[in-house]
Nucleic acid binder design. Sequence first.
DNA 1: GAATTCGGAGGACAGTTGTTCACTGACATC
DNA 2: GATGTCAGTGAACAACTGTCCTCCGAATTC
Lengths: 216, 216
Amino acid sequence: MSHSVGGVRQAQKQKTRQALLDAALGLLEEQSLSSLGLREVTRVVGIAPTAFYRHFRDLGELGVALVEEALGSLHAMVRAILVEQAGAEERIDRTVAVVERHVREHPAHVRFVARERHGGVRAVRQAIAGELARFTEEVAEVLKSQPVSAGWRDEDMRMLAELYVDRLVTTAAELIDAAEDGAEGAAEEVVSRSRRQLRLISIGRRHWKEEGGEVV
Amino acid sequence: MSHSVGGVRQAQKQKTRQALLDAALGLLEEQSLSSLGLREVTRVVGIAPTAFYRHFRDLGELGVALVEEALGSLHAMVRAILVEQAGAEERIDRTVAVVERHVREHPAHVRFVARERHGGVRAVRQAIAGELARFTEEVAEVLKSQPVSAGWRDEDMRMLAELYVDRLVTTAAELIDAAEDGAEGAAEEVVSRSRRQLRLISIGRRHWKEEGGEVV
DNA sequence: GAATTCGGAGGACAGTTGTTCACTGACATC
DNA sequence: GATGTCAGTGAACAACTGTCCTCCGAATTC
């Protein structure tokens, strides 16, 4: 597979494409996508403004690419944890720990998603919503296969999954805020609170059938 | 109180100030604050660009004013409902109904808060965070006074309040999205799901002391 | 009724923006 | 080794931005 297609050509293109994504992500730490300038990005990369069009039609398209980069890898991670055979308590701890680590390693990606989830660019909003919906569906399936979920309606399964996913996304956003506020124990407090919240949801889940399921 | 101070002068100023806020809110339906232009706003109002400075130092200051306008009235509303003596089921229904109505009556305000909560302007982010924190604290106090909360630590009280408040904010944001997507039964589905989620949290709350409280 | 305050107008400034077009030159294909 | 593809260039375009300054005139104050 040495003479596939292209070669040096495509590799170089991919490289500056990635440089554009990285530069944009950096600039987006202090502004939102709808105020980001095309020239601003190319200036950081060190290429002519017009070269941008070789890679993206506009900044919205770049934004969608960033969404995939930010959310694509997350699926496998959380899925791997949830599928483990372990007590509820341990699963919660490990999930929160993964979120914490993810925020520490990719803060710019997390901030980007939090910011543009309800941001000013429709295409990006929809991309995030779609990715998060897929994610929620995956979580719902895993939860469904657990013994505790016997007798649950698919509809209720999804509302529970959304509850979990939303909590994780919110926790990630709070960790970002805590980090930039510089308050000392802020991050630890967020983590502790998030764990207790997940625990409360887990308790509600176990007692759902007794008192919640029938009333609809 | 006829000759208070100013008179026609101050009234007129207040009027164009409000016009600026309204115009900005309108423009912000399709973009975010950090990309909003000062001239853009004054053009809609019909005044000279420089007149803007008579009311706000910059758009960030206008944004903070919008936050107060959007979130200020909300406190009393939800507080009034929570304080009612009624079954958990009924309180949930009425709370969700209030949120639903609020979104229908002030969609632009809701969208603004959702968008700028993690948006690109620090001062506005902080204003929203502060307002939401005050709100959460109020909810926590009301919840604390209910019989079910006997023996709860203040810390846990706050994490529960945050769980509730976050759920309401998320529901509001989802209702906005549902409305603009134009899908037929989307809004009803969001409301139904939100009710069940609040119910599950409420169930978890009732069983918290038995299994959650001791493990810390 | 004269003096003052102050919301707003209007011109001008230097910078910036997205997009167009014809172009170059290194790589890829045959 | 000639031919074509195509990532990146650079000049030029009209449109726009935030801010400075001077001025006007009506509401306020004394």
